[in-house]
Each structure stands twice: as C-alpha cells, then as structure tokens.
Amino acid sequence: MIKIENLEKVYKTEEIETTALNGINMHVKTGEFVSIMGPSGCGKSTLLNVMGLLDKPESGSYKFLETELLSMNDKQRSNFRKQNMGFVFQNFNLIDELTVFENIELPLIYNKVPATERKRLVNEIIERMNIVNRSGHFPQQLSGGQQQRVAVARALVTKPKLVLADEPTGNLDSSHGNEVMELLCELNEQGTTIVMVTHSSHDASFSNRIINLKDGHVISEKINKSRTEELI
C-alpha cells in the first residue's frame, strides 16, 4: 500500500540544521499493522507526519497505492488526507469547544457527508467505542482513556484506509493504554492499515512488524511471528 524511498527531511532553524529523516526506505502492506520504534528525537514523528501529508520532505518518493503523493499541491494533499487517512495523537487533540459527538462529526463535515448520514455514522461509532453516554460531554469532562477513545473514533469515522497513531498510549496509564491498543487491533483485524509510533515494546507486540529508527535511518526491522502468521 505504501512505498517510501530515500526520504529526507531537514529542519532549518536560525542556528542549526537538523536532519530528521536521512534516507528512509520502507513499505507498508495493505492490512498491515506496523510499529515504529526508536530513541527520542530519531525522527519517528517526522516520518509519521510525512506519511500523513502533514509535513513535506526535502526529497524522496512516497507512493500510496501507486500514486505519488509528494508531487501534490496543498489542496490535493488536504483532499487526499481527509479521504484516506485518520490520525490519533499522544495528547488526543480534541477540540475543547466541541462536544464528543461534534468532535467525531467534524471530519465527516469536512468530507461533505450529508447530515442524516453523519448522524448515523457518528452514533454507530460512538456505540462501538462504548462512549454513548458521553456524547454530549466536552473533552475536559472525560478521563484520558475516554478522550483517546473519542480521538480514535474520530480517526475512524470516515473509514480511512490508513490510520496513523503517534504514541497513542503515551499519556495513558497501562489499563487505559491496553484498552486503546485492543481497539486498534480490532480495527486492524477488520482491515484497516495502521502505522503506529510507540516507545513501548508491549504496545509494539500487538503489531505485525516493528521498524526501528535511529538518527533518521531505518536500522532494523522485525517481523512479529505470533501476529503475522495469522495474517498470512
């Protein structure tokens, strides 16, 4: 599904230049659940952001289902993103002024889904996420785990082909973290491709494959046998 070649990303500030990605080569198959691991500052988030079209690399190629995405203009990227991708962040990133229901509804609005259809889709996912009695609440009124479930719901409501998650459990205690991981697994089993950045090898153990980064390079790759066999 995804094929990345020689991706380079350099951040320039007034004083220093940081090479965040230094010739990344990787691929992701449709239906796969890939974890990206590595020490802090090695470029994981940068890679994920590039994959999510939130950031532009200096050079390289990024093919998504045979379409080259890096040559697109802003408008095309934005369109592609909202139709194909969903995001889950470490700090949830819910809009404080909107209720749970409205937060989840927002991507559907941007995708111009008609109102009745929106209502149906949001209610469906709210039920699935087990947050029905929270739908009128505002984010601040929820626990971290609940907030992250809302964030996942929001990422899923458009039925994206690819979900990108940047340390989704980073701000959660282990039991809430596990809930979220189980949710992602379930999702993956239903066919959604997932790329997740994580620090935790426990979380990574839920995935099919683990890519290790260091200083903007892929240094190793490990297939998680127990999960992958059932996939093949």
Partner: peptide, 16 residues
C-alpha cells in the same frame, strides 16, 4: 491554534 491544527489535520481548508 490547537483547534486550527486539529481541524487542518482532519481536513479543514484554509478558506473554511
């Protein structure tokens, strides 16, 4: 800014 960032991530255009 946070609101703007989120909205842009999930598909808001600059115009909107």
């Amino acid at each position: 800014a946070k609101e703007v960032g989120i909205k842009k991530t999930i598909g808001a255009t600059r115009g909107s």
